[in-house]
Design a protein around this nucleic acid. Structure first.
Length: 607
RNA sequence: GCCGCCCUAGCUUAAUGGCAGAGCAACGGUUUUGUAAACCGUAGGUUGUGGGUUCGAAUCCGACGGGCGGCUCCA
């Protein structure tokens, strides 16, 4: 068995200490589970009263006292009947349930492990530290209270969960807390407002309103994605947003997702706003008889879809009710599957590095509510795994996380706060073609059923732009930037020349603005910096006479004077290269690194 | 949807049961600026909405709306 890293043992031990402190405060507490997690730990309790945030301070204090008392984590093994008896006596129904579960999973094992510290005893597989004294009392902190369903099941009772963060040293804890504070500054909802990219309104919950500057980013991404698809033989289509329920009944979505589909009745029919594009793509496939020679057919669509996500699940651009997918559907022969998947994987490998984002691959396997035959699923999962192997892609498996109609390869990425979000997805589907009775005429003149592949390269425009905004902390690389250049005349006398410069750039499709001289030069530069404009062109007496511009780089500051044509040439190349700022491109994977760099990098002078 | 927290001007916020106040932004004027905040003034509020408690509510209580952090879900 792999030995657990020390930090994990520390975190796990702290969850035990937390439970012990809760026991001290509320002896009638019923205990759930308390594991170590990334950056810390939590413990679930069924308590006689609701916790408030002051309770966290009290509990922290109690924990510190337990640590100071240097109590031993005493381990003992007792038999299952003994365990059941003891925890029954202690009125711990959740522990009894756990004991029964463990017995069921390990019918051969005779004993079960418990831990004692002071007069608190908990069921726990360990390992823990030797004693509480090994914990540095300044290297952990209780952070939040939330609800959590017992065993993660919505139908079970909701328990109160206490979260804590913990590190080896107080220094690391301080770093982590500071980093989270920094991360809040790059929250896409905040930056979206500050940079005038998009807004949300209570009348249209969960749906972004895109402002002109946000559309600049959107359009660049759209064009980039379309270009990539065109290169790989995809044909663009567009389908409606509305269809009768009959279509969704055939596809199976009605049965699986009726509650989270928007639908309404009109003229004795029920209509649904589309939560998916696939059935519509299928309708286009079905408009003629297809030959094996026609396959693969690769459709791509900017799909505007609506899902009635539960209100508590919404989260800015990351989880929206109205979203826009960069959707693709491939209809192919069974022996073309692996190659098609490979092409999609290649596209993903080509796409993400452009933004300095490293995709993390997951293979999601057959869920419990799957449709179709096990043998088809086994084959589909094998196809996906093979394609991943051929492309030499490292991946992890997400057991039972596939779509109801097929297994999938997902690409996840972390946001500024370290939360994972799914972006790309490739789904292999033998079910929809059967349900919709799709066919093609094979070599031998027989009708056969094609295979369908669903894929999105970056998932949704909304989520992807949200991730990008946080990734770059709003300082977009030139090709994506809402405002690429701002012309700033030193005084009104040079307004005419500044306009001339602006027009010259604008004619080259550069996104350029100009600020007239009603404010001081310093202030206008400051504003442009805050708007994260990539280049400022300052023009005055000297520049006007010599037909030059003084270039100020958003990151590097004053870059000296140059001819307009020369500047144009430089940025044209920078845009073409989709050059990214190295400093900002790696931050998502390296939180500590990020914090250090941000300090140096985002350097508005202290005012 | 569930648990907890939050909502004061466009933004950031002050006032914790007793006159809703400031900074930035906006607008008007003066200034015409050389690389991160010129100066003076004006306007902007049913304190998310609608109830209750109170002599008196931004403040206390419950309802609704919206948001945030979790949970659940994510085709």
């Amino acid at each position: 068995m792999k030995k657990k890293p020390k930090i994990e043992i520390l975190r796990h031990s702290l969850s035990h200490v937390l439970a012990s402190a809760v026991y001290e405060m509320l002896p009638e507490a019923k205990f759930g589970m308390g594991p170590a997690i990334e950056n810390g730990f939590y413990y679930d309790f069924d308590l006689p009263r609701t916790l408030i945030s002051e309770d966290l301070e009290i509990l922290e204090e109690k924990m510190r006292r337990i640590i100071a008392a240097n109590l031993k984590f005493e381990r003992a093994y007792i038999t299952f009947p003994e365990a059941e008896k003891d925890f029954k006596k202690a009125k711990q129904p959740y522990k009894i349930e756990l004991i029964k579960d463990i017995k069921k999973e390990n019918p051969k094992s005779k004993t079960i492990s418990i831990y004692r510290t002071g007069n608190f005893v908990d069921l726990c597989s360990g390992p823990h530290l030797e004693s509480t004294g090994e914990i540095n009392p300044a290297s952990f902190k209780l952070t939040k209270i939330s609800g959590a369903y017992w065993k993660g099941n919505e139908k079970n009772k909701m328990l109160q969960r206490i979260y804590g963060v913990a590190f080896d040293s107080p220094r690391e804890l301080r770093q982590y807390l500071a980093m989270m504070q920094e991360a809040e500054k790059r929250d896409h909802k905040k930056l979206g407002r500050e940079l005038d990219l998009f807004s949300f309104h209570e009348e249209s919950q969960g749906s972004a309103f895109w402002h002109p500057r946000g559309m600049a980013v959107w359009n660049e991404i759209e064009n980039f994605g379309k270009g990539l698809r065109k290169k790989h033989g995809f044909l663009e289509i567009q389908t409606p947003i509305l269809a009768k329920d009959s279509l969704w009944k055939i596809s199976g979505h009605w049965d699986h997702y009726k509650d989270s589909m928007f639908h309404f009745d009109a003229e004795k029919e029920t209509y649904c706003l589309k939560p998916m594009d696939c059935p519509f793509n299928i309708k286009i496939y079905q408009t003629k008889l297809r030959s094996y020679r026609d396959l693969p057919i690769r459709y791509t669509e900017i799909g505007r879809i609506m899902r009635n996500e539960k209100s508590g699940e919404l989260n800015g651009l990351f989880r929206a009710r109205y979203l826009t997918q960069d959707d693709s559907h491939i209809f192919c022969l069974p022996d073309q599957v692996e190659k098609e998947i490979s092409v999609l994987l290649k596209m993903i490998k080509e796409y993400y590095p452009t933004f300095g984002i490293e995709p993390k691959f997951f293979l999601s396997t057959r869920p419990d509510d799957f449709m179709g035959k096990r043998s088809e699923w086994d084959l589909a999962e094998k196809n996906l795994a093979n394609a991943l192997r051929v492309e030499k892609i490292k991946y992890k498996t997400k057991e039972r996380d596939g779509a109801f109609y097929g297994p999938k390869i997902d690409i996840d990425i972390k946001d500024a706060l370290g939360r994972n979000w799914q972006l790309a997805t490739i789904q292999l589907d033998f079910q929809m073609p059967q349900r919709f009775k799709l066919e093609y005429i094979d070599k031998d003149g027989q009708k056969r059923i094609p295979v369908m592949i669903h894929a999105a390269i970056f998932g949704s425009f909304e989520r992807f732009i949200g991730i990008l905004t946080e990734h770059f902390a709003g300082a977009f690389p030139l090709w994506l930037s809402p405002v690429q250049v701002e012309v700033i005349p030193v005084s009104e006398k040079f307004g005419k020349y500044a306009t001339e410069v602006q027009q010259k750039l604008s004619a080259e499709n550069i996104r350029v603005t100009m600020k007239d001289a009603s404010e001081s030069l310093g202030k206008r530069i400051r504003e442009a910096q805050q708007e994260k404009v990539n280049y400022m062109l300052i023009v005055g007496e000297k520049e006007m006479k010599a037909k030059t511009v003084a270039v100020r780089d958003r990151e590097k500051g004053d870059m000296g004077v140059t001819k307009i044509e020369k500047f144009l040439e430089k940025i044209r190349k920078e845009i073409q290269d989709k050059k990214k700022y190295a400093i900002l491109s790696e931050n998502i994977r390296l939180p500590n690194e990020l914090f250090r760099r941000r300090k140096n990098f985002n350097n508005p002078r202290k005012i």
